[in-house]
């Protein structure tokens, strides 16, 4: 078997285990390429039946408009249920406080909205598109990763995970985060997207837009970035390698418009994918700390 077939078969197997083992699973959908790939894999796993789970999007309110438009089109085409948890609702309810200043971001706030959404719907398993090659905390996380009733990940108390036997047994109030594409790399995802001809939001491909430079990174010149007279707005040809919130996702200068060019660009790139994520630059253990707090 070719490696992409192996990775695909493994991911489908994991998705079907979720369906078989849990009462109320959900698929966390960010609008990024990894979660779009998950949706494609779910179609392979469950069609012509319906998905045994809804899609859940945690909307920071600072998303790229292209991502939201893409999401709505995809949902309409799939005919599956979408549940949206709004960070704005958490702010309005006084559960979180909006950060102030130039580098303000809602990225950290979405953990609260995520945990509230999980609790409100009683989800016992949440499927996510995280990959182990992204970051060293993720390199040690299980495919079935148990979170306690506070949503926390405890790296010291992970269950041994052997062969393809996934232990999804939990107590009430706990939930399991499931990562079907744990063993995929960034390049694997792109090669698979090319092979399967999966559609993606336009911002992954080279386009011209207004950008500003913040902390050495090119950021889309959006109103959420609190642009002032010190910021120089430039019109540049860019694309995004990951798609998160506009306040924490940096662009790269790129002419790569076709998927073949993007794959070549990634092959030659000497910067890792998460190098363009401001949220990981906070400290060496930034991802580990967020995961312990209940992040994706």
């Amino acid at each position: 078997m070719d490696y992409l077939d192996q990775l695909e078969a493994e991911a489908i197997y994991i998705l079907r285990e979720v369906a078989g083992q849990f009462e109320k699973p959900a698929l966390l959908f960010s609008g990024g390429k990894d979660s779009i790939t998950l949706v494609h894999l779910a179609e392979k796993a469950f069609r012509p039946g319906k998905f045994p789970f809804p899609l859940v999007h945690i909307d920071t309110g600072h998303n790229f408009p292209e991502t939201i438009a893409f999401r709505d089109e995809l949902i309409a085409k799939l005919g599956e249920e979408l549940i949206v948890g709004y960070v704005q609702d958490s702010i309005d309810a006084g559960k979180v406080i909006e950060q102030k200043g130039k580098n303000a971001s809602r990225n950290a706030l979405q953990t609260v909205t995520l945990l509230d959404t999980i609790a409100a719907h009683g989800f016992d398993a949440c499927i996510g598109g995280a990959r182990r090659d992204e970051e060293k905390a993720r390199a040690k996380e299980r495919i079935f990763s148990v979170r306690d009733e506070f949503g926390q990940w405890d790296p010291k108390r992970q269950r041994p995970e052997l062969w393809s036997v996934y232990n999804g047994r939990i107590h009430k109030g706990e939930n399991v985060r499931v990562f079907p594409i744990s063993n995929w790399t960034e390049l694997d995802v792109w090669n698979y997207i090319r092979r399967e001809n999966i559609k993606l939001p336009s911002i992954y491909f080279s386009h011209e837009r207004d950008v500003i430079t913040r902390n050495g990174q090119l950021m889309a010149a959006a109103v959420h970035l609190n642009i002032d007279h010190e910021d120089v707005v430039e019109y540049r040809k860019v694309r995004f390698r990951t798609v998160g919130d506009m306040t924490c996702t940096a662009a790269v200068l790129s002419d790569a418009y076709h998927i073949d060019d993007i794959i070549d660009e990634i092959r030659l790139s000497k910067i890792s994918e998460r190098g363009a994520r401001m949220d990981d630059k906070v400290s060496e253990a930034a991802m580990e700390d967020r995961k312990k707090g209940g992040y994706f």
Partner: peptide, 17 residues
């Protein structure tokens, strides 16, 4: 991980690609 460095423990398996 930080948890390992601080507490001098090791958390079983890490995967590298």
């Amino acid at each position: 991980l930080k948890a390992e460095r601080e507490q001098g423990i090791t958390i079983d398996v890490a995967y590298k690609y």
